[in-house]
């Protein structure tokens, strides 16, 4: 069941909408027609929101950052030239910058870490036996992820939660696939150490 849910998370679903989604026609229409832009927005909202949730681990914060991402998209939409698949990668790039900027605020980051620790300790003390395994793993993952570099967080999120290929991640980050591969290996190693500790 979980696997099925994960499969549905694949944001490449947009590629199945129509051929027009990839040939740039929808992008061209969205430049002149607000209704076409609204359709484009609806097709990509879920992906951006999920990416923000997986990076920030908070729904409310993820919604705020998603709003900022699309506002930024409108500001710079005139400069974007490409197909809709490239548009999706462009959205990920904007979202990555927005999330990193959000996490760069040290106070917020510390508050999130502190909240995660309190959540783990309190729940362990109160109902250690009845504690949901999923909640426990989520808290551990959140604590470990937020201690990584933002670039490593981005790579892991895009790879394992958004199921992007290495080539697609390299487009988002502006790096070569080989670099992304090596950075993914280092990120996983560090994350594993964090989770074990």
């Amino acid at each position: 069941m979980i696997v099925g849910t994960l499969k549905l998370r694949r944001t490449v679903g947009v590629d199945n909408d129509s051929k027009a989604a990839n040939d740039g026609q929808s992008i061209a229409e969205a430049r002149t027609d607000p209704a076409a832009f609204a359709q484009l927005y609806r097709r990509h909202y879920d992906a951006v929101f999920r990416y923000c949730v997986h990076r920030l681990f908070e729904r409310q914060t993820a919604e705020d950052v998603t709003s900022a991402v699309f506002l930024k998209t409108i500001e710079n939409f005139g400069r974007f030239k490409g197909t809709e698949r490239q548009f999706r990668n462009w959205l990920y790039k904007i979202a990555t910058n927005a999330v990193n900027e959000h996490l760069r605020k040290a106070a917020r980051k510390d508050a999130m870490l502190k909240g995660a620790r309190e959540q783990i300790s309190s729940r362990a003390a109160d109902c250690e036996d009845t504690m949901n395994e999923n909640v426990k793993n989520l808290a551990v993952l959140k604590q470990a992820m937020l201690t990584l570099k933002p670039r490593y967080q981005t790579i892991i999120t895009l790879r394992f939660f958004e199921n992007l290929k290495l080539t697609e991640i390299s487009e988002v980050l502006g790096s070569s696939p080989g670099t992304v591969r090596s950075q993914l290996a280092r990120a996983l190693a560090r994350l594993r150490n964090k989770i074990r500790n």
Partner: peptide, 10 residues
């Protein structure tokens, strides 16, 4: 990751 269920429904 599969063991973790996110509350990520839009």
């Amino acid at each position: 990751v599969r063991t973790i269920k996110f509350d990520d429904t839009p």
